[in-house]
Amino acid sequence: MIKKLFLLILMIVVASCSSNQSVVRTSKPDPRKASAPVAQRVKKPIYRPNQPKSTETVAQKSSTATSNNSGSTVVLEATTRVKVTTEMVLAYIDRYKGVAKENMVKSGIPASITLGQAILESGAGTGPLSMQANNHFGIKCHKEWTGPSIRYTDDEENECFRKYDDPSGSFQDHSYFLTSRPRYASLFQLGKSDYAAWAKGLKAAGYATDPKYPEKLIGLIERYQLSKYDAEVLGKDYAPVVITKKEIAYTEDAEKYTVVKGDTLYSLSKKFNISIEELKRKNNMTDNSLSLGQTIIVK
């Protein structure tokens, strides 16, 4: 009996040992189960607060910064009482020089004269008539005009001015205006490269009432070297104009101003930051009256 009991205990011990050894020696960790959590963590995006969200956003911010820091501008004042920068004038010339040269070939009007007048009359395309009616030369309706028009107060209240579908129509009409009227016939006897004679001839023929119109026009042509486009059409070599100090209204340091409708000594004193008494002293004025087209010293 004791012998049987001993054998039973021995069998239980052996079975127990065998069970423990099988767990330790035969079980191996599953590599897939161990690596899965690590792989998931690596694949998650890493957020860095200072990192740009996208290239597009950076480009947009850069563009905005550039536009907001365009630098200081030099202000010019046109006869239409609008202010433009030198950069705007140069862009205007670049845009319409081709039209002016083409019209010179067809009509014989110097491209420099066309461009100079357009800049002066339209404020380099920013004046009310050019913006609202594509009228870059301030041409009024006159009796023969049957096209669209716009009302604008110039020398008189609500005057009729021509309206065009495109600025090029205004340039072409300007050429036709000069070539079709007998009073401008003498201009076409002048040399096509003599812009100074053309500028003076326009005033003599009654194109403008401003007594300083020729000086302003010549000043613009020389300042922006507009006569080089005449040379290109004529196939001639161009010698840049040497700019000398002149009294022209279309300049950053303008010292003179042409009176327009609505001006008073008080408004001009505020505009140019000068006292009324100083204005009168500079211009030898005995009273406060002003006349349209009058040129007065303001600086």
Rank of each mutant, 00 (worst) to 15 (best):
K216E: 06
V58Y: 01
I296V: 15
N134G: 10
L190E: 11
K299T: 08
E247G: 08
A78Y: 11
K106W: 02
Y224V: 07
C17W: 00
P45R: 05
Y229N: 06
F137W: 04
Y238R: 10
E215F: 11
R181F: 05
R32P: 00
V75Y: 06
T179C: 04
Y207I: 01
A118V: 04
T55S: 14
V13D: 03
M131C: 00
F272E: 10
V75F: 05
L129C: 09
R25L: 14
S267E: 03
Y164S: 05
A197F: 02
E159P: 00
S62K: 14
I46K: 07
I150D: 01
D166K: 07
R151Y: 14
N284K: 14
I139V: 09
P167Y: 07
D237H: 07
E121H: 05
K192Q: 15
L115K: 00
K192S: 13
T264F: 11
V84D: 00
A34Q: 14
T295F: 00
R183H: 08
A231E: 08
T55G: 09
S170C: 12
G293N: 12
A100T: 01
A34E: 15
T146F: 09
R81D: 15
E232M: 05
Y96I: 03
K228A: 02
N69L: 14
T258Y: 06
E215H: 07
T146Q: 13
T114L: 01
G262R: 04
V75N: 06
I274F: 06
V99F: 11
L76W: 07
R181M: 12
K246I: 12
S62M: 13
I221Y: 03
S186C: 00
A118E: 04
G169Y: 05
G116L: 03
T264A: 10
L120E: 09
Q172T: 14
D237W: 01
H136R: 10
S289L: 13
D237A: 14
Q189Y: 08
A39W: 07
T244L: 02
G71F: 09
D194Q: 14
K203A: 13
R95W: 01
D287K: 01
I12G: 02
A239L: 03
N134C: 11
S107G: 09
L5I: 13
